[in-house]
Design a protein around this nucleic acid. Structure first.
Lengths: 227, 227
DNA sequence: TTGCAGAATATAGTATTACTATAATTTACA
DNA sequence: TGTAAATTATAGTAATACTATATTCTGCAA
């Protein structure tokens, strides 16, 4: 691990050279996110990134060994940043239940006042992770990558939410699975609402409000608390 | 749509030539599943499939236009088959709640007595869909593919479960989202239990029992019913 | 049995991709 | 100003995702 230009630390095994350490590196991050968002990780190539960023292909490989690592970089950046947001927004709450509700709201819906983490806007980063994030770990090298702690931030935010769940309901049998369910569904239901709406009860215009309502209801019912 | 060798019908736009219609086609399905399971869809190539099946690369392309279509074929086969299983196993139940519980159990854990759908065992097919299934729709062409009704069986089993939920709790506000949550988590939590256990509360040996317990508790709590 | 249409399969290619090795240039600062 | 180290560019290679075309089967009418 080494510090970078963010207010938090990313796993340095993800990259060959820290992309936040140079203007060229920041172009790699920005163009990469833009192109992956536009056409998906499958259509994304180092050559396209190089052309978009006005650099050469070989330069891209000076920063990231391959596109899987670049994707995992965004993945780690997103979850690290989101956990930080959860901490910031729950710090002011004293009641455990209010804290938990706030955490779910932050996870489901980025607060408008949050500052951008850097080169990519938080909205683009979130959409990138919603669309492509699962491919960071649904991969043949998942166990190797897990051993390198690439998924630590994702586990960390899940553990934080699980702790908050236990603070409200100390006898909850499956706090981690419940936390995972809320985090995962808050992202995948957004994708479904947009692309496969038959899997949700959310008309497109109202999806955020209804998604928040669904997740909180799921939580309240699981904790056997009346809203 | 056209009928194939299964007791149900798959979308004929998925393939160029029905792989169940010839010995070579069945080899494509069998070798494809084997190789995708072994090393993931990213490492999978038409050439490797051809070598494994003892055919040539061009022959593979006579059956499937590309590997995305082959993956979507497995995806559709799995969900169509699983919905049929749910129907078979809930047909004997008369009580709506017992039906629903049985449905969740079938979705979470393949009953041992179920017959294989054909060339691939149901266990391999399920593992393939758990590992790679989300890539069938987390893809830049999701809207096009959805218009071609490639995800119809996935929507159909979700709609069936939602209907069963409504039969138990007619005033449920989000039956589809709840059905999606149960179906999705029944698969992804299995993957996490195996590869990222820190995201679950399930020690590896007992994961199936605990996963079933977690999902049923989520359901009971959501329906406000005591187990 | 032969002839032959159409289906099935094989051969041989191409453009693109995911990298790598090495050369050239810039920068940092003694 | 000179030079080592850092940075970037050039120029490759092996592999991949297909496609075009050639060849071989297969069923069955004459």
């Amino acid at each position: 691990m080494t510090t970078s230009k963010y207010s938090f630390t990313l796993n340095s095994d993800l990259y060959i050279k820290d992309p936040t350490s140079s203007e060229t590196g920041r172009k790699v991050i920005a163009s990469g996110a833009k192109l992956i968002l536009e056409n998906g990780i499958e259509a994304f190539t180092a050559k396209k990134l190089a052309v978009d960023a006005g650099i050469t292909e070989a330069t891209v490989y000076k920063y990231f060994a391959n596109k899987q690592r670049l994707l995992q970089y965004y993945f780690q950046l997103y979850w690290t940043w989101l956990e930080q947001q959860v901490k910031v927004f729950t710090a002011i709450e004293t009641d455990p239940l209010q804290s938990l509700v706030k955490a779910v709201r932050v996870i489901s819906n980025i607060p408008a006042v949050a500052a951008d983490p850097g080169v990519i806007t938080k909205y683009d980063l979130r959409e990138l992770v919603i669309n492509e994030g699962s491919k960071a770990y649904y991969h043949a090298q998942v166990d190797e990558d897990n051993a390198k702690r690439f998924f630590a931030p994702y586990k960390s935010i899940t553990a934080l939410l699980a702790t908050m769940i236990l603070a409200v309901k100390p006898d909850e049998k499956y706090p981690l699975a419940l936390a995972t369910t809320i985090i995962e569904m808050s992202h995948s239901l957004k994708y479904y609402a947009k692309h496969l709406p038959a899997l949700t009860d959310f008309p497109h215009e109202t999806d955020q409000v209804k998604l928040d309502d669904f997740l909180l209801q799921l939580l309240y019912n699981s904790l056997k608390i009346k809203p």
